[in-house]
């Protein structure tokens, strides 16, 4: 189960590194971050690290598309992941923003010690952003999803339930840092086996968005 967990966290990642507000048309956001996770075993906490790169582009004023890359390190064999993450805005005012993302990710075990060595995951994520002031936003991001490992049978497919709370500090859509903590519950699809993964992450984001445009009232 522990290696299934590793594949799962590599798929889902940790640090969201984004505001709940979607990018405006033509704006770009680039983020890089590192997450540390603790996977609880019966006898010890196993450290697990994940590096991530996210790039997003605003296709309309209420929708963006994103590309994300990640890779594990610090424990056993390396697992890499690549995925897309479209996000749409549901509600946005100066004080609060709500958006919904539909990340889909494929991960693979480079050493091929896992069997099968490829897995896929989808985990719709809701973003709720509470603007504390002009340069600080609290971002809540609950998510639910599943991991499918083709050819493995039902035994190693898992369901996911989790969430994170983070801060987005800095000039919105231009230069922000994002500390974040979260929890991910992983449930086997066929047994009662359940694990909890605790995460802490930190990301840096740069973009070419305009704060004036960000807070402009939408039609």
């Amino acid at each position: 189960m522990i290696r299934v967990l590793l594949a799962t966290v590599a798929l889902v990642g940790c640090t969201q590194m984004q505001s709940a507000r979607t990018l405006r048309t033509g704006d770009t956001r680039v983020s890089a971050g590192i997450s540390r996770m603790s996977i609880s075993d019966d006898t010890q906490l196993i450290p697990f690290y994940l590096g991530e790169l996210h790039v997003a582009y605003g296709v309309t004023d209420t929708a963006e598309v994103g590309l994300q890359l990640g890779r594990s390190a610090g424990i056993g064999d390396a697992i890499s992941s690549v995925g897309v993450a479209p996000k749409i805005s549901l509600h946005e005012t100066r004080a609060i923003a709500v958006s919904l993302a539909f990340p889909g990710v494929v991960a693979w075990d480079e050493s091929r010690t896992l069997s099968p060595s490829v897995a896929a995951a989808a985990y719709p994520t809701l973003y709720v952003g509470l603007q504390l002031d002009g340069e600080t936003e609290v971002v809540l991001s609950p998510r639910v999803g599943g991991v499918w490992r083709p050819g493995s049978g039902d035994s190693s497919n898992v369901f996911l339930l989790g969430g994170a709370v983070g801060l987005s500090i800095g000039a919105p859509a231009r230069a922000t840092v994002q500390p974040e903590i979260g929890i991910l519950l992983v449930q086997s699809s066929t047994t009662d086996h359940r694990e909890a993964v605790f995460t802490i992450g930190f990301g840096v984001t740069a973009g070419n968005g305009s704060a004036a445009r960000r807070y402009a009232r939408r039609p």
Partner: peptide, 20 residues
């Protein structure tokens, strides 16, 4: 590789990098 640089204030800058 990509290095992202964010200027928090006049003297403090942060950067995140990814390399493939």
């Amino acid at each position: 590789g990509v290095t992202v640089q964010a200027q928090v204030n006049a003297f403090l800058g942060l950067q995140g990098r990814a390399y493939f």
